[in-house]
Computed example of a mutant assay.
Amino acid sequence: MLTSFKDTADISSYARESVAALVKAGYLEGYDGGVHPNQPMTRVQAAVMIAGVLGLKYGLIR
């Protein structure tokens, strides 16, 4: 599952199984070909992930 990301080797060994589970469940998609484990998560990224885990719908409000 993680082999599709270019930065898989940068994921710490203790987090690899959890990151793979998030990807498999569809809660983590990554961007620009990677999951960028060494960069901080933004509030928006965290909110989208939490909304997905809770089964909430999100999108633009018009």
Rank of each mutant, 00 (worst) to 15 (best):
M1R: 15
L2N: 00
S4W: 11
S4T: 12
S4Q: 14
F5P: 01
F5H: 03
K6H: 14
K6R: 14
D7M: 01
A9Q: 07
A9C: 02
S12F: 00
S12H: 05
S13L: 04
S13R: 02
S13V: 04
Y14W: 09
A15Q: 00
R16D: 02
R16T: 02
E17N: 08
S18N: 12
A21V: 01
A21S: 11
L22H: 04
V23P: 02
A25M: 04
A25P: 04
A25S: 07
Y27I: 09
L28T: 02
E29D: 07
Y31P: 06
G33P: 03
G33W: 02
G34L: 05
G34A: 08
H36N: 11
P37N: 06
Q39I: 07
Q39T: 11
P40E: 09
P40A: 14
M41N: 13
R43M: 06
Q45Y: 04
A46Y: 13
A46M: 11
V48N: 12
V48Y: 13
I50G: 13
G52N: 06
V53H: 09
V53S: 10
L54D: 06
G55M: 04
Y58H: 11
Y58E: 06
Y58W: 11
Y58F: 14
G59Q: 07
G59F: 08
L60Q: 12
L60T: 10
I61K: 15
R62V: 09
